[in-house]
Amino acid sequence: MPLGYDLNWAVIAIMGFLGLSSVLGMFLISFLIAPKRKSEIKDAPYECGILPDSYNWSQINIRYYVFAILFLLFDIEAVFLFPWALIFVKAVPIVFYEMILFIAILFFGLIYAWKKGVLEWQ
């Protein structure tokens, strides 16, 4: 294990703990000093003054799920690219050309999706 590796994670844990506890502390202070007056009208969902009538989670058309799939591809690519970025200068030449080929394939994938009209807002 490299030097200070466990300390890195310990510090991240301290950081997370402190962030979490400060937020919870803020909620606690607010819970102690803020007024609590329940009323049926106040607790209703806000819809610009009109009383909501239907069930709260109505059906919604998520238009960009194709974008989400594309994003997944590119994000995985990013995971591969980060280690590659640090070693390709020193590694054997095939490493460099392989990744350029990989980027090219994904890029043509993007152009294909574009030509297919996936990127248009319908």
């Binding site: 997370g16 979490l20 919870l24 803020a34 209703a44 969902p45």
Partner: peptide, 26 residues
């Protein structure tokens, strides 16, 4: 802001609603 009433909407998914700010802040 701290001393203002913290409203929990009646129809909300209480747990998800309550934890969302923490997931954004941390």
């Amino acid at each position: 802001l701290i001393s203002k009433e913290d409203i929990l909407p009646a129809w909300a998914d209480k747990l998800v609603y309550w934890f969302a700010p923490i997931v954004v802040f941390v």
